[in-house]
Write a protein that binds this DNA or RNA. Structure first.
Lengths: 250, 250
DNA sequence: CCGGTATGTTACCCGTGGGTAACATAGCAG
DNA sequence: CTGCTATGTTACCCACGGGTAACATACCGG
């Protein structure tokens, strides 16, 4: 049973003497949902408690304070992204292939609630120490991507460019996913991931002869990091005519 | 004299009977600065007043309430971006060229405080009506970009792809600029813009023969939309070894 | 020099939300 | 059944920040 990708169980607080870990998890998940819906600042602990049909002080049995909930969201999300990326370095050969794998894995993580939290919530709401922890992690992510690019340039699979700026561009495109992605939207995570990989590695420009943008019929579709993907709207795609920034949730 | 790109004049509130418009402008600019430094939610009107060496109620002579300040930031930023983009459609030919021009102009706008406000501040802090206004504008931006891509695909200058997702990728990369760009950082706006244009249109992959990434020695450097760019750090670039998400301001 | 007015300030109200102490009870052990 | 303890609830405190009313004064015209 997956503890990260599923929604919070509504009856977690049904019985009084119940699994404490399960309750803590339910608190965390509903908090993450609300943080994504309304932002951390506009979410009160009463909101979280209400959605769980409890009262605010009950939450303090599972978390020391509001910030600890936020930090835990970051930690879970960071773990999620980390484990998604961990196995790409050994599996791939060229720098370009590694970047492509990075894009696929990262885009996917950006469609999971906790993953979205990592890039969408505001570090400014964390204490000094916690912020340092999160930043250190993000730095590691960036270094990884940049080293892939660097490697690709050296070996010739990637065009000469400033690896730092290129990494900013790719990471930006990926990070922004968490701003517009909706779980119930028309675009499936793997569709997004494969299209992003195409645009970012091969660019928009029509190469002389090469490339027909590969339709998402790759063999690795169907399941990624334990979550099942649904092929939604295969015939009538792109119904959701939104944009740079989409209507907010709820 | 440019009213948008300059910093707020410190002595704006020096004399009591002074230019009211100038004071209003000073309030707006310092507010925008603080919103970018600490976020809207963590910026109190006392903070704004303190930086201007006045007291909170004085601000209410120039704005009805806090939200009106925020909305005005959006409006100025939106105007900024809009006018930067307005003259690219006529000037360029192919869809690909238009997209490239879009990237250059937009990236540039994302390095101006008010431009950054548009994508970085949280629409959730606006009232229903104001949010609608801002969203309508962002929708227009997105439609413009998407139509350029569409045009490029039809005429063959852009590779076949999903224009919607491609637009998301490009807009995401560009929007994210406002999250890491620092006016006093090592990267100059036009350097960022031209590198972004390269990566996004031609992609990372090394084409068989083509391309050496054009260094930013283009003729249009030096001045863009009225602001003078300084060539910083030309010899020792890329000193700032940050990442996916950079240290916050201040 | 003298009012009058635009501009700012001091002092305050009040809603909101994080956090806590004291109390209530569900559910198990014996 | 009896009481003990983990779990929740009620009732509260307090800081903070948006917003306002009433007062003070700098500057201008006359």
């Amino acid at each position: 049973m997956d503890l990260i990708h599923t929604d919070p169980r509504p009856g977690a607080f049904a019985s009084r003497r119940g699994d404490a870990a399960a309750k803590r998890e339910a608190v965390l998940k509903t908090a993450a949902q609300l943080f994504l819906e309304k932002s951390y600042g506009r979410t009160s602990l009463n909101d979280v408690a209400d959605r769980l049909s409890v009262t605010k002080p009950a939450l303090y049995r599972y978390f020391r304070n509001k910030e600890e909930i936020l930090l835990e969201c970051y930690r879970v999300g960071v773990g999620l992204i980390g484990s998604a990326l961990d196995d790409i370095a050994p599996r791939c050969g060229t720098g370009l292939e590694r970047v492509e794998a990075f894009i696929l894995a990262y885009a996917n993580a950006m469609t999971v609630n906790f993953g979205r939290c990592v890039m969408r919530l505001d570090e400014g709401d964390l204490s000094e120490d916690a912020r340092g922890e999160v930043r250190a992690y993000k730095r590691k992510l960036d270094r990884r991507l940049r080293s892939f690019i660097q490697q690709g340039i050296e070996e010739g699979s990637i065009a000469r460019c400033d690896p730092k700026i290129a990494a900013f561009a790719i990471a930006g495109a990926l990070n922004w996913i968490c701003m517009w992605y909706r779980p119930d939207g028309a675009l499936s995570p793997q569709e997004i991931a494969s299209q992003f990989a195409g645009v970012l590695t091969r660019g928009l420009a029509a190469g002389e002869s090469r490339r027909v943008v590969r339709k998402s019929t790759n063999s690795d579709s169907g399941k990624v990091d334990g979550r099942r993907f649904v092929k939604k709207d295969t015939n009538n795609r792109h119904r959701n005519h939104s944009l740079l920034y989409q209507e907010p949730h709820e």
